[in-house]
Design a protein around this nucleic acid. Structure first.
Length: 112
DNA sequence: GTGATGACGCAGT
DNA sequence: GACTGCGCCATCA
């Protein structure tokens, strides 16, 4: 994917790449920032990242509750968790980000 | 061409 | 406070 209709997918990946190491963001935050209208589009776009865009830290994107909703889309279900832990982020029960609210990073925050 | 589905979030009950 | 239903856009069968 590159030509055709450069969709919001590139924007989603750009924002995702912008997430600082050791921080996480949410689908809703990206959807709001890019004005997509539905966070579902973010999940759909990010699914492509897991399949072809290895430079995109998709593991830093979680749902509004801090759960690793997309870990099943990675090479291994634990890859997402391990990558986050290697960045200093603790994972509870292998499915939720510890201190999620403190680690939360929003694209809008980078504008200020 | 139509119907179902998907890494979610919000509003309403 | 918890649960349910709907919407959003694109891809696959």
């Amino acid at each position: 994917m590159k030509n055709k209709d450069a969709t919001y997918i590139e924007d989603v990946m750009a924002v995702t790449r912008f997430v600082p190491r050791g921080r996480v963001t949410t689908y809703g935050a990206i959807a709001t920032y890019l004005h997509l209208g539905s966070p579902r589009m973010v999940g759909w776009a990010l699914r492509l990242c897991g399949t072809g865009y290895h430079d995109v830290p998709a593991h830093r994107v979680v749902n509004s509750k801090g759960f690793l909703s997309g870990r099943n889309q990675f090479a291994t279900p634990t890859l997402m968790q391990e990558r986050l832990e290697s960045e200093g982020i603790a994972i509870l029960n292998g499915e939720q980000v510890a201190d999620f609210k403190q680690l939360l990073w929003e694209p809008l925050a980078s504008l200020e």
